[in-house]
């Protein structure tokens, strides 16, 4: 199952290494990681998209992350109301004649062209991963010269539908 996990961490040197090393050592399958500062000085937020086999493995992941001294809070926000975004830049092969056609393709995605050269064009798109995937597939037939994605970063929405918090640890007080 694909889960979106966020972790707020102390922004100390080595924390990224510790967290990614831990995920590798315990054989968690990471699709993407994005890291950035937050509104609080010294605190960063990591967003992981992981593919885990089952609930037990997911629980291990959360516990192992929580165990790290510099990890302040871990949340699985997959089942919450969230806004998740990723940014991708796609360099597509284009002849000048095809530019109009491509413009029409990217338009509904609200993507923008940020660079144009004789034989290529770079498109920037932001959105959830499915939307990014969809655009990439549409552009693929033209020939993808280069592709870079930031990985997902996500927030819970300001307002949540009534639902229980992430499976609480009844074992913790």
């Amino acid at each position: 199952m694909r889960r979106i996990i966020t972790a707020t961490v102390h922004n100390r040197s080595g924390v990224l290494n510790r967290v990614t090393g831990l995920l590798a050592k315990r054989q968690f399958n990471i699709e993407s990681i994005s890291v950035g500062r937050t509104e609080t000085e010294g605190v960063s937020k990591m967003t992981f998209v992981v593919d885990v086999e089952d609930e037990r493995k997911l629980e291990q992941l959360s516990k192992q992350l929580n165990k790290q001294i510099d990890v302040i809070k871990v949340s699985d926000i997959t089942d919450k109301q969230i806004v998740a975004r990723e940014l991708a830049m796609i360099k597509v092969l284009t002849t000048p004649q095809q530019r109009g056609e491509l413009q029409a393709i990217i338009e509904p995605f609200r993507a923008t062209i940020i660079d144009v050269s004789k034989e290529s064009m770079t498109v920037q798109i932001t959105g959830d991963s499915d939307k990014v995937d969809a655009l990439i597939e549409l552009l693929r037939p033209y020939g993808l010269k280069e592709l870079a994605r930031t990985g997902v970063t996500a927030f819970t929405r300001g307002q949540q539908r009534q639902q229980t918090e992430m499976k609480p640890y009844s074992i913790l007080n």
Partner: peptide
């Protein structure tokens, strides 16, 4: 005392951290 040990290898019905 380490919650990550509970349920790691053996499914546990009564976890006590």
């Amino acid at each position: 005392i380490d919650p990550a040990e509970i349920g790691k290898n053996v499914p546990t019905e009564i976890p006590i951290v």
